[in-house]
Design a protein around this nucleic acid. Structure first.
Length: 809
DNA sequence: AGACACTGCGCACCG
DNA sequence: CGCAGTGTCT
């Protein structure tokens, strides 16, 4: 087959001639020796061990620019793989900047998944089981679809969904796919997983995916590998094409990705892998640190280049991080160093509970922002981040920051395209584009409510199966033959006709795909679902059009998201192109507007940096995470330690570690011990803070004990336990216990006047939402109408409007 | 079919 | 605690 005929691979003029004539290689200036070696060692296998903050991305992008400028390869002959879309985007930007122009001609710079899709689309018909095969138009299922599908299969086998949860099976199958184990390749022992049903259900799932013309994320990699293995000629074509291969975050590759890379690199061995074994934090989802540790064996003659000069952090931060990670075994070993001047020690502080922790961090952030920490000067909110171990920790901060009106942004969490309304809208688009997309049909046939319940769906399914057609076509037959009665039938007819109409529209140039999308969402009644219905007796002819008002704040947000979705369509030529993009790439909306503190998980923070970093929740069980340790023993603990290392090394100038004595878990208060990682921090680089004297001398004294004798604390865990057995600590616990028992579980507040004297109609002020009016009162919660809409808010968070006093707390 | 109450379960995460 | 999934009622 002809592989080199694609226009997208070779557009753009040879960069080599143009750029080389003009300048002698200014892009190499300012690189240190190691970086320069990493850039200039172009041929043969190279392992770039790049510690945190050592200019890895710079080396990588410069290397690509160098390849292009030296004329070693065309843009279309370089394969550059990243893990996240964000990383891919950033690399594209930076290469563009290096070359002084936008490089549209790097078609093979992307994530493992996006590149795999491109490859698979060209050979889809070769993926199959003999009877069925994929079509190039295959859809990519996300986790949600995957679970729904598995649930159906488990049901089909008459298994109890409680005893065999689909989630668990999904996990199992993902694990197999991560290791490139097709159903046929499962080792004997493993197919018996899931009480003996594992192998069988896996096979059934794969078959079902084929009939749906669909793949899941794991398939993208696995199918590529099996394709390459079964068709040497095709593999050869791709090997010839990709003359140079670069891989970012190599320590996070799993077995499937490793096989994928090896197959592609085998022929010419021009592969450059970049990674840091100390930052391997994805073992729990199949990443193999072994891949990076084994590189020199896999690629004999590999050159290993170490990037060890750190340009990001102060010596204190580096020393603390290095001291911590030294406790891990089996490292490749790196010594980060910096010539930056001395900065501040890491700070360590304990708090009574997670709320106190959030409160304190909030105050610190405000103090930094106001410049009240002289050493740093005023710090922008954008330059501060809170990095948590588990996402549930975020809530305490959100609550607190909301209360004090501190702008924040949560990074991670449910992503844009995972939201219900987006997925619904996408299902509409999918069904319009591919009428036999049964999963899309199932998702939206009764959304909005069309009076089609379980029974109606079953009828449609039966009819579809009898006629050997998809569900939409089945529904059409149901409508024609009137297998259904009453309202449901009429609604189903409208629905089927609507999809038919839109499908025609989609192939018609008369209407743009953006307009079409709006039309679909409108005519389907989907938008109306989130709008206030007109009152009874509202007559459009007489009263005019009922204005579009969202039902509530939540609906308002959803409508906003839908608007954004439609707007995003403008960047594409048609719906198909958009759907393709969204399945893999669509990120959450990143409104970069204004100054905001970032809150994110440690996993989400990898690759980022902030001048000021807060690391809350350093308690045994939470961090290191109990489950990680239970399930993976020492390996799990070491991965947690690497995560701690990643966290500390995000900080440029100041890192603050905090822990709380009590934390709510599943709604229950639990007390906990400070993290064992705290013991592992080199004491000379840590300053133990005494918390503000909220609780009198006892607590302060206890902390002073911890701070005054760090050595004792370091050497002997029992000594640290002493801290928490000190009289002050005990007094505090006793007092808190009193408060807890006084705080009844029934939810009745102790406050005699829970609504704090507010009555309906009062004007109130809230730190974040501004002025509003009380519309309703339930116990201690007020319903307040702000400019931003209605909010339910605890009475203690608002104050009478115009009252200049601080929020009572 | 749809609304509502009740019960049991669970926190990493990117494609 | 918050959610999703189930059961019960109208």
């Amino acid at each position: 087959m002809e592989l080199l005929d694609d226009s997208d691979d070779f557009d753009g003029v040879p960069l080599s001639q143009r750029a080389m004539a003009a300048r002698p290689a200014p892009y190499l200036e300012g690189l240190n020796a190691a970086q320069r070696a990493a850039v200039e060692t172009l041929d043969g296998p190279v392992l770039m061990l790049a510690g945190a903050g050592t200019g890895k991305t710079r080396a990588l992008t410069t290397r690509i620019a160098h390849l292009l400028i030296q004329g070693k390869a065309w843009p279309g002959q370089i394969l550059a793989v990243t893990f996240t879309n964000k990383a891919a985007r950033e690399m594209k930007d930076r290469i563009g900047r290096l070359l002084g122009e936008t490089v549209e001609g790097m078609p093979w710079l992307g994530t493992f998944h996006s590149i795999s899709v491109k490859i698979l689309r060209r050979h889809a018909e070769l993926i199959g089981n003999g009877e069925l095969h994929l079509k190039p138009s295959f859809t990519i299922l996300d986790t949600d679809d995957q679970i729904r599908l598995l649930k159906q299969l488990i049901k089909a086998e008459n298994l109890d969904e409680k005893r065999w949860p689909a989630r668990q099976l999904a996990h199992l199958i993902d694990g197999w796919k991560n290791r490139c184990l097709t159903p046929g390749r499962l080792p004997k022992g493993e197919e018996a997983a899931f009480d003996g049903w594992g192998g069988r259900l896996y096979q059934a799932y794969q078959d079902r995916l084929l009939t749906l013309n669909a793949v899941d994320f794991g398939d993208l990699l696995m199918h590529c590998v099996t394709l390459f293995q079964a068709h040497p000629d095709i593999l050869k074509g791709w090997q010839d094409r990709f003359r140079y291969i670069l891989v970012d975050e190599y320590q996070d590759t799993n077995v499937a990705q490793y096989m994928w890379l090896r197959l592609l690199a085998q022929a010419h061995k021009n592969i450059c892998c970049v990674g840091d074994d100390d930052q391997s934090i994805y073992g729990w989802r199949g990443a193999e640190v072994g891949n990076i540790l084994r590189f020199e064996k896999d690629f004999p003659g590999a050159q290993v280049i170490r990037l060890e000069q750190n340009y990001r952090s102060t010596p204190e931060i580096l020393a603390a991080a290095s001291g911590l990670i030294a406790a891990n075994s089996g490292r490749l070993g790196k010594t980060l160093w910096t010539d930056a001047e001395a900065g501040e020690k890491l700070r360590l502080i304990g708090h009574w509970d997670s709320e106190a922790e959030a409160r304190w961090i909030g105050e610190e952030i405000e103090a930094f922002q106001g410049g009240h920490r002289a050493a740093l000067g005023p710090v922008s909110l954008n330059d501060m981040a809170i990095l948590v171990r588990a996402s549930h920790q975020m809530r305490a901060f959100e609550d607190r920051f909301m209360t004090i009106g501190l702008p924040y942004r949560v990074i991670g969490g449910p992503r844009f395209y995972e939201r219900q309304e987006i997925r619904d809208a996408m299902a509409y688009f999918r069904l319009v584009v591919s009428p036999d997309d049964d999963l899309a049909f199932e998702r939206i046939v009764n959304t909005p409510k069309r009076g089609l319940g379980d029974k109606a769906i079953q009828t449609i399914q039966t009819v579809a199966r009898q006629n050997g057609v998809g569900l939409l076509e089945g529904a059409r037959i149901v409508v024609e033959d009137k297998h259904l009665g009453g309202k449901g039938l009429a609604n189903l007819r409208d629905f089927v006709n609507g999809v038919g109409r839109w499908h025609v529209d989609a192939t018609d140039d008369a209407i743009s795909h953006v307009e079409l999308a709006e039309r679909i969402l409108d005519e389907s009644g989907y938008i109306a679902m989130y709008l206030k219905p007109p009152p009874d007796g509202w007559d459009e002819d007489r009263d005019g059009e009922w204005p579009a008002i969202a039902k509530d704040v939540e609906a308002e947000g959803r409508l906003e998201n839908l608007k954004e979705l439609v707007k995003a369509l403008e960047d594409f030529d048609n719906l198909q192109g958009f759907l393709e993009h969204v399945a893999l790439v669509m990120d959450r909306d990143s409104d970069e507007s204004g100054e905001q503190v970032s809150i994110m998980t440690l996993h989400g923070a990898k690759g980022l940096e902030f001048p000021v970093v807060f690391l809350p929740g350093w308690e045994d069980g939470l961090f290191p995470n109990q489950r990680a340790m239970d399930e993976n023993g020492t390996k799990g603990l070491e991965e947690e330690r690497r995560l701690a290392y990643v966290g500390i090394t995000r900080a440029e100038r100041l890192a603050t570690i905090t822990f709380a004595g009590n934390r709510r878990l599943y709604g229950q208060w639990q007390s906990s011990m400070p993290s064992r990682f705290i013991d592992e921090l080199p004491e000379q680089h840590v300053e133990v803070l005494t918390p503000p004297g909220l609780y009198g001398g006892g607590y302060g004294a206890a902390m002073a004990h911890a701070g005054g004798n760090p050595a004792a604390q370091m050497q002997d865990r029992a000594a640290r336990a002493d801290v928490y057995n000190s009289p002050g600590w005990k007094r505090m616990q006793a007092r808190a216990a009193e408060r807890k028992t006084a705080m009844p579980r029934t939810g009745v507040t102790i406050d005699a006047d829970p609504a704090a004297g507010f009555k309906v109609g009062d004007r109130v002020n809230h730190a974040k939402f501004g002025d509003g009016q009380v519309m309703g009162i339930a116990e201690d919660t007020l319903t307040v109408q702000f400019d931003a809409g209605f909010k339910n808010i605890k009475a203690s968070y608002v104050r009478p409007a115009g009252d200049d006093q601080d929020v009572p707390f």
